[in-house]
Design a binder for these strands. Sequence first.
DNA 1: ACTTACCACATGGTTTGTAA
DNA 2: TTACAAACCATGTGGTAAGT
Length: 282
Amino acid sequence: MSGRRLHVQASRLRAQLDTRALAVLDTLYRFRLLTTAQVQRLYLVSGVPGSRIRRTQYLMKRLQTLALVVRLSRVIGGVRAGSSGFVYGLSALGQAVLDVSGPAGGRRRRVWETTPYFQDHMLMVAELYVGLREAERQGQAMLLTFTSEPGCWRHFTGSGGELVVLKPDAYVRVGFQAVERRVFIEVDLATESLPTIVRKSARYVAYWRSGVEQQRAGVFPQVVWLVPDQHRLQNIQRALGSLAVEASGLFEVALIDAGPRLLMAPPELEEKPDHSSSRPPP
DNA sequence: ACTTACCACATGGTTTGTAA
DNA sequence: TTACAAACCATGTGGTAAGT
């Protein structure tokens, strides 16, 4: 399909979508993949409980019929019992619809033909976002920013003068009454080796030492590793122990299920050593 | 066009039953 | 006791129908 034609079709489609449908597409753009259940938890929270999911299915089916989303694999007979729902990604047309109103930005993304691991990882990042939105709905904290890849990437110059790219899974700002928490998120599914974890973490330390983020944003975010189970949590904590002592306070490791609760809870004010404003000696 | 209710279907893990 | 099979269960989805 040629660009011009696509654009015309996208404009026409956009006109007949309501704000909720557009929001779904936009969120799909940000996270690349979403499950039906996640869409429901984000955008169909009112009404009779039993019918919410049904309405979500109706909505997603409509978007699929319009070729705005693509439906990926479905695992039936899931982990314990029952099925997992469908997983949706944005189609090229869906992306074009977002482009209509301006810079949806980056290059086209392809969500299908991806490995199960990447799918799981993307869905976990999305899951964290959904969890944070739900926590926000009930709690006092506000989710000010949730930037996923690649928007949350950071570029800086390493000690050898080389260009380094830091690739967190997400950058999160949570607002409380007077204070604000900023966090880089690393979602870990226990698929990477501990040396890889350490290497990634060292890159955060290098970025911290560069002072770029502090200059840009005033503070350096905490780096939170979210892991699937207790065993992995201990392993990563131990691995992080090998990093420079003064950098250890940068990191926190937590269970991924506890992620939203942790991030939306007001920070205790006494706190550990403050890395945010101070630059370490060269 | 959208919402809601109801029921059947698909399917793998879990449990229970049975034979070796 | 072990090994395998049948029955059961959980869960999201789809169709349909009726209501708004």
